[in-house]
């Protein structure tokens, strides 16, 4: 799993990772966050940066399936791992069930928080395909929507979960 690394003492590291199914090998400054790397180096601007305190959830992405705040996660730490961002959700022109459900439930207004909500919802459904409404609320309580769309968001996640179980 772990690519060969200079063991110590450099302010750059080479990162070899799978980003949305694409192999990426890039030297990055140690000080770079994953959000910087995704947005500025790979052009994946779907990951948004807002609070930079791990509170708002706009920058949520998955690393080896676990949700992390890309704003407070070193790009160096994706070495040897698999990263999923909102750009990796849809299969070509086919929206992911979560994305389709968000559209159908009008679960967004300005859309800035949406990539984060989608990735957190994916993390939840990957480990719990049949969550209760309370479990959805609890899992998403680290994501903030300032257009106050929480109820449609929760409804969209529950509906997507149902749809995904049906497809399985």
């Amino acid at each position: 799993m772990t690519a060969a690394q200079p063991a110590t003492g450099h302010d750059h590291v080479v990162v070899a990772a799978d980003v949305n199914g694409v192999s990426v090998t890039e030297p990055v400054p140690t000080r770079w966050t994953l959000a910087q790397f995704l947005r500025d180096r790979l052009g994946l601007t779907g990951t948004k940066v807002s609070c930079e305190l791990q509170v708002c959830g706009a920058c949520s992405v998955l690393v080896d399936g676990a949700p992390v705040s890309a704003c407070t996660y070193l790009a160096a730490d994706i070495d040897g791992r698999r990263v999923q961002t909102v750009e990796g959700l849809a299969a070509r022109d086919q929206l992911h069930p979560l994305q389709r459900s968000f559209v159908e439930h009008f679960a967004l207004q300005c859309g800035f928080c949406t990539p984060g909500f989608l990735m957190m919802a994916k993390a939840l459904l990957d480990r719990n395909p049949d969550p209760t409404e309370d479990e959805v609320k609890e899992y998403l309580d680290g994501n903030i929507c300032r257009c106050t769309g929480y109820e449609p968001i929760v409804a969209a996640v529950l509906d997507a979960a149902k749809r995904m179980r049906g497809q399985a």
């Binding site: 690394q5 063991a7 110590t8 003492g9 450099h10 302010d11 590291v13 400054p29 140690t30 000080r31 770079w32 966050t33 940066v49 930079e52 070193l74 160096a76």
Partner: peptide, 21 residues
């Protein structure tokens, strides 16, 4: 937004880590 620069050490044993702290 930007973190200040720093070196990154990645020890694989506790003894190595202790020698770096």
């Amino acid at each position: 937004m930007v973190l200040p620069p720093f070196a990154l050490h990645r020890p694989t044993t506790t003894a190595q880590a202790l020698s770096l702290l």
